[in-house]
């Protein structure tokens, strides 16, 4: 190591110092260009959402007359009328439906997946590795495959259109990722902790509840955020299985898309309402969000 550093230093001093200066100069110039490019890219990513916010706070007439960017010269046109109109249309019901679908799904996925992940990580049973490989395989099954079969299954059992039918579909398709993520995390729990508990004769459910689950909190938090956002943002499953009484916000908004120009007041305010909670969650828990995403992308 020492010799390597010495060579490096000698290399730097022996090398042309002029070139060092020059390249530093280039770096500075380039640095300025990089700043400008990055600011432009940042704007490119930020401005469309800003546009939605401004459009949602202007009347249809104003939106049809001029672009949202004129707001910088006419801030007085901002109004919350679209939001109060939206709430008067019964959009609140779909907001509560979104919550009634998302919260139980997230809790069920965490509970059921944690149990299975514990079994995969720390129990010995025949066929364990094969079963887990099947779970890995199920990670990317397109949900389209289950739409028709489950529609007829729900039709036969009378569940069609109910909130539980949507929740259970979400739970099942959330499980492979959840089991995969948690199992990989649980495997890292020190074996000595579990062994000690087992030696003491603690029952498995107790080890699970008092050791594995608490130790798994970081992974469970990542999974929870991810699962919550995934279900909150889903449109396809709701489109097929929810009816007008059980529909979440995404489906309620989708039904307004046909007359985009005329419904822009409802659509923009509804879309913004639907994304404000995910955004708050994202900014509050972005660390867990990023971790969950990296763990989930099959390293």
């Amino acid at each position: 190591m020492a010799t390597a550093t010495a060579t490096v230093e000698r290399g730097v001093h022996a090398g042309a110092p002029k070139r060092g200066l020059l390249s530093r100069g280039v770096d500075k110039l380039g640095g300025g260009a990089v700043q400008v490019v990055m600011i432009l890219i940042g704007l490119f990513w930020l401005v469309p959402t800003l546009g939605l916010l401004v459009v949602s706070m202007r009347s249809v007439a104003v939106n049809n007359a001029e672009g949202w960017w004129t707001i910088f010269t006419k801030p007085a046109e901002l109004t919350l009328a679209n939001y109060s109109n939206l709430l008067a249309t019964g959009f609140t019901a779909s907001f509560w439906n979104t919550i009634a679908i998302t919260v139980p799904t997230t809790i069920l996925v965490i509970g059921i997946a944690a149990m299975a992940a514990y079994a995969f990580a720390w129990m010995d049973f025949p066929g364990r590795d094969l079963l887990f490989l099947i779970v890995v395989g199920l990670l990317i099954v397109p949900i389209q495959v289950a739409l028709i079969p489950m529609a007829s299954f729900y039709g036969g059992t009378g569940m069609f259109g109910s909130i539980p039918s949507v929740v259970l579909f979400h739970v099942a398709f959330g499980l492979p990722f959840a089991i995969f993520l948690l199992r990989n995390f649980f495997v890292g729990i020190p074996a000595s902790l579990l062994e000690a508990a087992r030696m003491d004769g603690a029952p498995e459910w107790k080890i699970f509840a008092s050791i594995v689950f608490p130790l798994g909190k970081p992974a469970i938090a990542s999974l929870g955020i991810f699962q919550f956002l995934w279900v909150w943002n889903d449109m396809l499953i709701a489109l097929v299985f929810a009816n007008p009484d059980s529909q979440p916000m995404t489906k309620a908004l989708q039904s307004q898309m046909r007359q985009f120009g005329n419904n822009i007041d409802i659509l923009s305010s509804g879309a913004f309402l639907s994304l404000i909670i995910p955004l708050i969650l994202f900014f509050a828990f972005q660390r867990y969000f990023v971790q969950g995403m990296m763990a989930g992308s099959v390293k």
Binding site: P48, L52, W232, D234, T250, Q254, I264, L267, P278, L279
Partner: peptide
């Protein structure tokens, strides 16, 4: 910068669709 560019990941594709219909 990362937060800004990463933010659309949290937004529903439905909302992203409305955003780009406007764009």
């Amino acid at each position: 910068f990362k937060l800004i560019v990463f933010m659309p990941m949290a937004v529903s594709l439905m909302a992203a669709g409305v955003i780009f219909r406007l764009v």
